[in-house]
Simulated assay, not measured.
Amino acid sequence: MVASACNLSTREGEGTEYPGGDGIYRTKSSTRNHTTLVEFILLGFSDVPNLQRLLFGVFLIIYIIILIGNSLIIIITKVDPSLQIPMYFFLGNFSFLEICYVSVTVPRLLQDLYRQDRNISFLACATQMYFFLVLGATECFILTAMAYDRYVAICNPLLYPLIMNSSLCTQLAASCWTSGVPVHIGFTYFIFSLPFCGSNQLNHFFCDIPAVLTLACGDTFIIEMLIYVIALLVVTIPFLMILGSYVKIVLTVLKLPSAIGRAKSFSTCSSHLMVVAIFFGSGIITYLRPKSSHSARTDKFLSLLYTIVTPMFNPLIYCLRNKDVMVALKKFLLKWIAL
């Protein structure tokens, strides 16, 4: 299986293709003392062969739940008049983002589990990593924008309509969607410019940074420093901004004279805080912990949290903990059933 899955390119004037003793075909270069791989094999969950069909069924059901749940939120935030406020504008953007985010990794995972064809070319791997990173950065920024919206609504309620006007909301959303694009184009290019040699077996279910870097045979120090810098800009700073917003929100809410008012204010923020804790927590542990503490099993588990589990629970968290969304959802479903 490995022999047939491992294809290697032969560049004109650089070398010839030859079979290695382990059955993997490689390109021998006259100018470089290493071999060059042009395909990876995503091992995914191949270490549990008896559970392949079960995992396929579980992940397929989760993917369908994510698509349906987030699509319903997008629809009701667009059609229900009571939800035409900035809070739900960002929630609609967030739900659309979640659909895009899981669609980068889950369809490929389902294909690997069903067909057992785990080959992925360098181009496909780089493309998957790029969109995963861009959409992950977008999620960090949108969660930050949502926290800012709650901060203004609770700490400056009289100025809220003036500050969070439609123009600012549109600009914030556009910035969230586009800010990570140029950075991650260059970052992905640098990663896949590294020489890859030896094994082409990627011990992950998608092309994540730590898994890909373990196969690089060149010096990865600069890339590792870039990871920390980008993680600082994309993950740590937004997380600290969210934390700062909620510290001010809590201090403001505690000053409210009415217990009912305090409970209502906290309820509008609790769902967002739960999503932030799961997404940022798993992301920070994955990308900012020391390289020596990385393990394939732990990385795969953490990746499942922020690529599949969090997007699945987001619609449930925002619907079940938000009365306005629940009322709008019931109205929409009753109207749709009546048709």
Results as ranks from 00 to 15, higher is better:
Tyr189Pro: 01
Phe192His: 00
Phe192Leu: 01
Phe192Asn: 01
Ser193Asn: 14
Leu194Trp: 00
Leu194Val: 00
Leu194Lys: 04
Pro195Asp: 01
Phe196Gly: 00
Phe196Pro: 00
Cys197Met: 09
Gly198Gln: 02
Ser199Met: 09
Asn200Arg: 08
Asn200Glu: 03
His204Lys: 07
Phe205His: 11
Phe205Ile: 06
Phe206Leu: 04
Cys207Asn: 04
Ala211His: 08
Ala211Arg: 07
Leu213His: 07
Leu213Tyr: 10
Thr214His: 13
Leu215Pro: 04
Leu215Cys: 03
Ala216Thr: 02
Ala216Asp: 01
Cys217Asp: 03
Gly218Thr: 04
Gly218Asp: 06
Asp219Trp: 06
Thr220Arg: 03
Ile222Met: 11
Ile223Lys: 00
Glu224Gln: 14
Glu224Tyr: 08
Leu226Tyr: 12
Tyr228Cys: 10
Val229Lys: 05
Ile230Phe: 10
Ala231Thr: 06
Val234Glu: 05
Val235Glu: 12
Val235Gln: 13
Thr236Cys: 14
Thr236Met: 11
Thr236Ile: 15
Pro238Tyr: 03
Pro238Val: 05
Met241Arg: 11
Ile242His: 03
Ile242Ser: 03
Ile242Leu: 06
Leu243Tyr: 15
Ser245Asp: 15
Tyr246Ala: 09
Val247Glu: 09
Val250Pro: 00
Leu251Glu: 14
Leu251Asn: 13
Thr252Glu: 14
Thr252Asn: 11
Val253Cys: 02
Pro257Thr: 06
Pro257Val: 05
Ser258His: 08
Ser258Gln: 11
Ser258Thr: 13
Gly261Thr: 11
Gly261Glu: 10
Arg262Cys: 05
Arg262Phe: 02
Ala263Arg: 15
Ser265Asn: 13
Ser265Asp: 08
Thr268Tyr: 09
Thr268Arg: 14
Ser271Leu: 05
Leu273Ala: 15
Val275Gln: 10
Val276Ser: 09
Ile278Met: 15
Phe279Leu: 13
Phe280Pro: 04
Phe280Met: 05
Ser282Thr: 13
Ser282Gly: 09
Gly283Thr: 14
Gly283Asn: 11
Gly283Phe: 12
Thr286Met: 13
Tyr287Gln: 04
Leu288Ala: 01
Leu288Lys: 05
Leu288Ser: 11
Ser292Phe: 12
Ser293Asp: 13
Ser293Gly: 08
Ser295Tyr: 08
